[in-house]
């Protein structure tokens, strides 16, 4: 490859430098584009995740485009002529080159890992995602993150087959729509009554398995007012896909106002698309499909909310 010519081939080097420059520019541009591929940023974690993803997109573009450039080059210019059955030059290796392409990727991935651990630490400070085992939590009511000032979980999240229930014990409110205050670190206590579910709000870039038998403390800071999707991200059975509700982020005053009004509302059945579909399925004379787990009855809540309004992400 590069070792054989004794005199530097200037046009080739200039061409290579030009091409690499072009790839660098393209990679940088792709890195900028990558922000547009993601949902709106609605939590303090989101810009950190997106920044990391943008950096990775740029690196990935450079590596991929570089490899494809070489492949395209050889396919265009290193084709055997028709009827040419001779062999090419027998170059068996080049130790120096092999060491280079071992060490450079090593440095590159370790650099990415270092950057990532730093992002991990920052997200951890903003809202640790550590879980605690149910028994430990029961004993001292403190999340495992310990020393870091962890606000008491103010919202209980209960996942079921197939509904989400949110309880605000401080305000004696329950809902099937998650309301969160803007710009304040909120503690959630995640529980499941049946199988593993996943608490996933794409606009927050956060996800946590909700594991039966455990109570998992989860912290996040919403940073943008709006209505977002909360999706079940861990396959949980028949109506897994329908197990999604809305998250409403509102200013602190609106949030407190909502809590106050909600506490005065009477209990009524909450949202559960699964129960609705199940009733429909059972009403048919010949139900189609295989046997299914019967959905849990919709939780009785003050505010059912909505999961059909337009959402921002």
């Amino acid at each position: 490859m590069t070792s054989t010519p004794s005199r530097p081939n200037l046009p080739a080097i200039a061409g290579l430098v030009f091409w690499i420059g072009l790839l660098v520019w393209f990679s940088f541009w792709m890195g900028q584009q990558s922000f547009g591929w993601l949902p709106v940023q609605a939590s303090s974690a989101a810009p950190l995740v997106d920044g990391l993803f943008s950096f990775e997109t740029a690196v990935a573009t450079f590596v991929f485009a570089g490899v494809v450039s070489v492949m395209a080059w050889v396919m265009l210019f290193n084709r055997a002529a028709k009827y040419d059955i001779s062999d090419a030059e027998p170059i068996e290796g080049n130790t120096k080159l092999e060491i280079i392409w071992t060490v450079i990727p090593l440095l590159l991935v370790m650099g990415i890992a270092y950057y990532t651990i730093d992002v991990n630490r920052q997200i951890g400070l903003i809202g640790p995602m550590d879980h605690v085992h149910g028994d430990r939590l029961a004993s001292d009511q403190q999340p495992a993150s310990g020393a870091a000032v962890a606000p008491q979980a103010e919202i209980e999240v209960i996942a079921r087959q197939w509904s989400w229930e949110f309880r605000y014990p401080g305000a004696a409110v329950s809902a099937t729509e998650l309301h969160l205050p803007l710009d304040r670190r909120v503690g959630l206590q995640l529980r499941s009554e049946d199988v593993i579910h996943g608490f996933y709000v794409p606009a927050f870039r956060l996800k946590q398995q909700v594991i039966p038998g455990r109570s998992i403390a989860f912290f996040l800071t919403p940073t943008r007012e709006g209505r977002y999707r909360l999706r079940d991200s861990e396959y949980s059975g028949t109506w897994f896909a329908a197990n999604q509700v809305d998250v409403v982020v509102q200013s602190e005053t609106d949030y407190q106002d909502w809590l106050r009004r909600a506490s005065r509302l009477p209990l009524q059945p909450g949202l559960s698309d699964a129960s609705r579909e199940y009733a429909l399925r059972q009403s048919r004379t010949r139900p189609s499909g295989y046997a299914t787990v019967v959905p849990a009855p919709p939780p009785m809540v003050n505010v059912p909310g909505s999961n059909t309004l337009p959402h921002d992400g």
Partner: peptide
């Protein structure tokens, strides 16, 4: 995460070795 990242290195060795094999060859 670090162990997963490390796998990129031996994998990269292979990819580069294939590219170097193709380079200057007589492709059919």
């Amino acid at each position: 995460m670090v162990t997963t990242m490390l796998i990129a290195v031996p994998t990269g060795i292979k990819v580069f070795a294939w590219l170097a094999t193709l380079w200057g060859g007589k492709l059919r």
